[in-house]
Design a protein around this nucleic acid. Structure first.
Lengths: 159, 159
DNA sequence: TTGGTAATGAAAACCATTTTCAATAAGGAG
DNA sequence: CTCCTTATTGAAAATGGTTTTCATTACCAA
């Protein structure tokens, strides 16, 4: 379980990649934000402190970080991929979200208690065995209507 | 809980839309396949029996069916959206998948037993209350490496 | 310090999905 | 049943997020 502000530098070098300035800036932005950001959001944030950055580099760096298991990728169906730094480099990671069908807002929820986690872990074990599938992590998504939209939209079905 | 081969016809008309030939063909393809299909896969299947079909119509029909809660949309992150007819028009639907990070294969799993369902239902209740969020359905995704890829790919990290 | 090569950024390409628009057809009114 | 309104359709063009191309730059091992 790596610690310190620059553990990811070691990870990148250990992954056989060069530690460049653009990559450092991107990692700083990712580590500063706990939310899942889109490539363009990351690009804009990096651009403030490193204007030479190119959107292409953001995409390429993210792809490297994902395949190096340093960043997690999410697709919520709003047309853009989101990315989030994996902070806990320990056991299986899990991410849970409430997604509003109306405004597409995404709410993170971390309310899974200890035995909720144990519970999902036991399901994972069962599925792993049955399908001979090695599970690395899981996500649960709860789709519905958020508080704000419930008030604003009376007739949900009509969109 | 509507029954019979053409319950969706009633649903569409009740939704204020016309029941056209292309829509019927699309619904037939959807109801015949239990897997989640991409728009293009649906297009090809409809094309076999109704060559005049346009891809645009497939997309538009799917959008209508999704907003009318007749079809469920999935984004697994491989660049194309998948669609699946909602067969059980009753209680909260749930869908669970194993997704291989290597070959992107998607395995449906229906092994959630009764009390597993109850368990997730209790989490839903908790979350609903805390976030004032009306939950309609949920999905759980387990990411990892499938049996086949485990054998083929020794060094997963290197991709 | 230097050389080989990975990484970069701008522009072009890609590709799933959406929009435009003129032609067509569903289905209620008469 | 026929007519008429208007939703629906399909082809082509547009859109927009992401990827590829390619010449230039800059890591970092020796």
């Amino acid at each position: 379980m790596p610690r310190g502000p620059h553990w990811f530098h070691r990870r990148i070098r250990g992954y056989g990649c060069r530690l460049t300035l653009p990559r450092q800036r991107i990692l700083e932005v990712l580590s500063r934000s706990s939310k899942h950001l889109s490539a363009e959001e990351i690009y804009h944030r990096v651009h403030q402190v490193y204007p030479a950055i190119g959107l292409t580099t953001v995409y390429r760096t993210l792809e490297m970080l994902v395949s190096g298991a340093m960043v997690m990728r999410f697709d919520f169906g709003d047309g853009r991929t989101r990315y989030e730094l994996i902070k806990d480099q320990g056991a299986l990671t899990s991410h849970h979200h409430l997604i509003c069908r109306v405004c597409l807002k995404i709410i993170d929820c971390e309310e899974f208690t200890g035995d909720e986690r144990d519970y999902l872990k036991s399901i994972e074990k069962k599925l792993s065995k049955k399908y001979k599938f090695e599970i690395r992590e899981h996500q649960t998504r709860f789709y519905g209507v958020c508080d704000k939209c419930k008030k604003e939209v009376t007739d949900y079905a009509k969109r």
